[in-house]
C-alpha cells in the first residue's frame, strides 16, 4: 500500500510537471503571441507585429527571454516568495506563487483561493447527486428489467440527456428563478459565513447539474447491475435464504459499483477543474469561467493555474479510484 502510494504520487507529480511545461511551450511557440494579444487589447488594435510597443510588452511579460528561464522563474515561485516586476512596479508574490494575471495584475494564487471554493462546492454537490439519484434508479430499473417502468425510465433518461446541457441550464435558470422564484437566486455565499445561504444559493445549480449527470449514472449502474444479477454468486445468495434486499445491496450492488466508480472518479476530476457552461450561465466565478476568459486573452499564469488544477485533480482521482477498487474487490492488490 505504502509503496503503491509513493509510486503513484511520483508518477502523478511527473504528469503535473509535464503539463505545466507544455502550457509554457504552447504560449512561447504557439501560433499567436500573447504579448501581441495583450498589446492589441490595451491599444484597441493599434499594435502591429512591428510596432515598438510590442517589444515593450514582450519584455514586460518575459517573452524575450528563453522559455526555460521563464519556466524556471515560475517553478521557483511555487516554493519561494518572489517579486514580479512589471515595468518599474514590483508585485510581491508569496509562495506558492502562480504568477500575476496579465489582465488585472492580481495574484493568481489569491484568485485561485477565492474561486476554488465555488467550483469545489459545485463539484461536491453535483457528484453526490449523480450517485444519490443515478445509482438507486439504475438499480431499481435493473431489478425490474424488461418491465414497463424499466423501459420508461431508460428511454426518458435518453431523451433527457439528448437535450443540450446549456439549454437545460439556461431554461431552468430563466423559468425557475428569474420568472417564478421557485428556487432561491443562484449566488455564492461562503460556507463558513452562512451555511444555509451557501446551500440555498447553490440549490438550483446542483439540481440541474446533478439531474442531468445522473441520467448517465442511471444507465451505467443499470447495465452493470443487470450483469451482476445474472452472476452465480447472486443465485447462491438467494439459495442461502437471504432477503431480496440483502441479496441486492450486499451481494449485487457492491460488485455492480466497481465499473461505476471508475467513471465517477474521472467525472469528479473534470467537475473540479471547472464547469464552464454552468459557471457561465449562472454567473458563478469559478475555475471554469476564469480559465475560459483567460484563454481568450492568452493570460498565461491563469491558464497555467487552471491546467494545473485539472492535472492534479485527474491524477488524484485516479489514485483514489484505484484505492477504492482495492477496497471493493479484494482480488485487486495495490502494487
Amino acid at each position: 500500500m505504502f509503496s503503491f502510494l509513493v509510486k503513484r504520487l511520483l508518477s502523478g507529480a511527473m504528469i503535473v510537471v509535464l503539463v505545466s511545461m507544455m502550457v509554457f511551450l504552447l504560449f512561447f511557440y504557439g501560433p499567436k503571441s500573447p504579448a501581441l494579444e495583450l498589446c492589441r487589447r490595451d491599444t484597441h488594435g493599434r499594435c502591429g507585429e512591428t510596432s515598438p510597443r510590442l517589444e515593450q510588452y514582450e519584455e514586460r511579460l518575459g517573452y524575450n527571454n528563453p522559455v526555460y528561464s521563464e519556466y524556471g522563474k515560475w517553478a521557483k515561485g511555487l516554493v519561494q516568495d518572489r517579486t514580479i516586476y512589471i515595468g518599474s512596479t514590483g508585485y510581491k508574490c508569496e509562495a506558492p506563487c502562480l504568477g500575476l494575471s496579465y489582465r488585472d495584475r492580481t495574484l493568481v494564487t489569491d484568485q485561485l483561493k477565492e474561486r476554488f471554493p465555488i467550483t469545489l462546492s459545485l463539484a461536491v454537490g453535483a457528484s453526490l447527486l449523480y450517485l444519490m439519484i443515478g445509482v438507486p434508479i439504475g438499480v431499481l430499473a435493473a431489478r425490474r428489467r424488461g418491465s414497463f417502468a424499466d423501459k420508461a425510465l431508460v428511454s426518458s433518461t435518453l431523451v433527457f440527456s439528448s437535450i443540450p446541457y446549456y439549454l437545460v441550464a439556461l431554461l431552468s435558470m430563466l423559468l425557475l428563478t428569474l420568472s417564478t422564484h421557485v428556487f432561491p437566486t443562484v449566488a455564492y455565499h461562503p460556507f463558513l459565513d452562512n451555511p444555509f445561504k451557501w446551500f440555498s444559493g447553490f440549490l438550483l445549480v446542483w439540481l440541474v447539474m446533478g439531474l442531468y449527470g445522473a441520467t448517465a449514472y442511471t444507465r451505467y449502474s443499470r447495465g452493470s447491475m443487470v450483469e451482476v444479477l445474472n452472476e452465480d454468486y447472486v443465485r447462491t445468495a438467494k439459495a442461502k435464504g437471504l432477503k431480496d434486499r440483502v441479496v441486492v445491496i450486499r451481494h449485487a450492488l457492491r460488485s455492480a459499483l466497481v465499473p461505476v466508480v471508475t467513471i465517477f472518479g474521472l467525472d469528479v476530476a473534470f467537475l473540479l477543474s471547472g464547469t464552464v457552461f454552468t459557471e457561465q450561465i449562472f454567473d458563478l466565478d469559478g475555475i471554469g469561467k476564469w480559465g475560459l476568459e483567460a484563454t481568450y486573452i492568452k493570460d498565461l499564469p491563469v491558464v497555467q493555474a487552471t491546467a494545473l488544477v485539472l492535472a492534479v485533480a485527474v491524477v488524484m482521482a485516479n489514485i483514489i479510484v484505484d484505492i477504492v477498487y482495492s477496497v471493493l474487490d479484494p482480488r485487486v492488490r495495490l502494487s
Binding site: 452472476e231 452465480d232 454468486y233 443465485r235 447462491t236 445468495a237 438467494k238 439459495a239 442461502k240 435464504g241 437471504l242 432477503k243 451481494h251 457492491r254 460488485s255 471493493l328 474487490d329 479484494p330 482480488r331
Partner: peptide
C-alpha cells in the same frame, strides 16, 4: 425463504463463480 439454505440447500457447479469474490 425460511426453507432455502435451511432445510433445503443447494451447491453449484462452478464454486469460483458461485462464491462472492469480494467476501471472505
Amino acid at each position: 425463504r425460511s426453507l432455502r439454505g435451511n432445510s433445503v440447500a443447494m451447491i453449484f457447479q462452478d464454486a469460483l463463480a458461485a462464491l462472492h469474490p469480494f467476501y471472505k
